[in-house]
């Protein structure tokens, strides 16, 4: 009964993992009559001296360093708000969750429209500053393109994180809150000494998953900026797709994929280690 699944795992998971390691040391091309040749560390040497690759690593980290805490923090605020005993909880939760069921391609095009120089965002900012604000061409400005994509990504992803915080919040026994209330703890103290420690497991999970998702940034870039302007929004996965698909260089793309995997692995190991220490 397990054999269909095992066969599929072998073909589409294990083989590609092995191939990622093997092809990274070859000059394999996506479409080529000749079999791949072993070229040692050439791909990695090329990678280390490629300024666009380093730009993509910087951008990817920049994106993650901002998006991970902002998304996790805002999601926690939403979860606490939705969890509070006030009317209309379900309505609010539904609205916060709507962007999650909207596809990232749709979201990217929608925000690309709103970020136009004569688009909704600029017109809104002009209106609230009574004309004091002069429009920014958000996605064509090397300074603003990445922050614009970050804001949009948080908007789309925060509802997902909220649900996970919420399920964590609801595992904290109500008696702990009652006890702390009897001890006269205020809202902040309750949060600091009951809620926060109770969320240790959830916290680790959320940090690891959002970080990996942030590292995997691709769709927004491909739809909104194609890595520009001046490589200010190119990312590691975007570079891998560019070399492995558009330029047909499977070998080089495999080397980028391995670098990407090393980043993912390192971050999840570090985060697991840190949250274990503090616990």
């Amino acid at each position: 009964m397990i054999s269909p699944a095992l066969a599929l795992f072998l073909l589409f998971l294990i083989v590609p993992i092995v191939l990622a390691f093997a092809l990274a040391f070859t000059n394999a091309r996506l479409i080529s009559p000749r079999p791949p040749e072993f070229i040692g560390l050439d791909n990695f040497a090329l990678l280390l001296t490629d300024p666009v690759f380093w730009a993509s690593v910087r951008n990817t980290f920049y994106f993650a360093v901002v998006v991970v805490p902002v998304q996790a923090g805002l999601a926690l605020v939403l979860a606490v708000l939705v969890n509070a005993k006030v009317r209309g909880t379900q309505f609010f939760r539904t609205i916060y969750f709507l962007p999650v069921v909207t596809s990232m391609v749709v979201v990217s095009l929608l925000w690309r429209f709103m970020y136009q120089p004569d688009g909704l965002i600029n017109r809104f900012l002009e209106a609230v500053t009574f004309g004091g604000f002069t429009g920014i061409d958000w996605l064509n400005d090397p300074t603003w393109a990445m922050p614009a994509i970050m804001l949009m990504s948080v908007w789309q992803g925060v509802g997902f994180t909220m649900i996970i915080w919420l399920s964590g919040l609801q595992t904290i026994p109500a008696e702990l809150y009652e006890a702390s209330e009897l001890d006269g703890a205020g809202t902040w103290h309750q949060f600091r000494y009951v809620t926060w420690p109770g969320l240790l497991q959830t916290r680790t999970f959320i940090l690891v998953t959002i970080t990996i998702a942030a590292f995997s940034l691709f769709t927004q870039i491909n739809v909104m900026t194609q890595g520009g302007p001046l490589d200010s929004t190119t990312t590691v996965v975007y570079q891998a797709v560019r070399s492995g698909y558009q330029q047909l260089q499977t070998g080089y793309a495999s080397a980028i994929s391995l670098a990407f995997f090393a980043m993912v692995l390192a971050v999840s190991l570090i985060q697991r280690y840190l949250s274990r220490e503090r616990g």
């Binding site: 993992i17 996506l30 590292f215 995997s216 797709v241 492995g244 499977t250 994929s257 995997f261 993912v264």
Partner: peptide, 26 residues
């Protein structure tokens, strides 16, 4: 062993495999 191997693959994001997989399915 099979169960832990399957669970271990959860850490590999699809984006890592996409390009080698593209070559492979071709």
């Amino acid at each position: 062993v099979v169960l832990s191997l399957i669970l271990a693959t959860l850490i590999v994001p699809f984006e890592t495999l996409a390009l080698p997989l593209l070559w492979w399915v071709n």
